[in-house]
């Protein structure tokens, strides 16, 4: 069947695509989507492992991750809306009010 290591490598590739997306892009939405990608990559790894290890704990955690990611996305979008109301840009680097 599918060796577990292939599954983990696949999920790691997606994870690092998410990392690159989150770090390099400056549009709020793409950064949020990259974080969703990273959480999904963890889901893939967990489901692969849970079928390899045999018990269902991985899938239970995966369900909770989906639930958390949905909650986070909701609050994220609320913040973006609030931010948009104050200033009419959503570029991440535009927020440099806080000097170092």
């Amino acid at each position: 069947m599918i060796p577990l290591s292939h599954v983990i490598i696949f999920s790691l590739v997606i994870f690092f695509i998410g990392v690159v997306g989150a770090l390099s892009r400056r549009n709020v939405f793409i950064v949020l989507m990259s974080i969703e990608l990273m959480l999904n990559a963890v889901n893939i790894a967990l489901i692969g492992i849970s079928s390899a290890v045999g018990n269902l704990i991985g899938q239970v955690l995966a369900i909770f991750i989906i639930c958390v990611a949905a909650g986070e996305a909701a609050v994220g979008m609320a913040i973006v809306v609030a931010l948009y109301r104050n200033r009419f840009t959503v570029n991440v680097d535009a927020f440099n009010l806080m000097k170092w």
């Binding site: 909770f64 639930c67 958390v68 949905a70 909650g71 986070e72 909701a74 609050v75 979008m77 609320a78 913040i79 809306v81 609030a82």
Partner: peptide
């Protein structure tokens, strides 16, 4: 997790 979703809802409403 249900408490979490409730908190997320309240947070979203308060902010937006």
């Amino acid at each position: 997790a249900s408490v979490l979703l409730l908190a997320a809802m309240i947070g979203a409403i308060v902010l937006a």
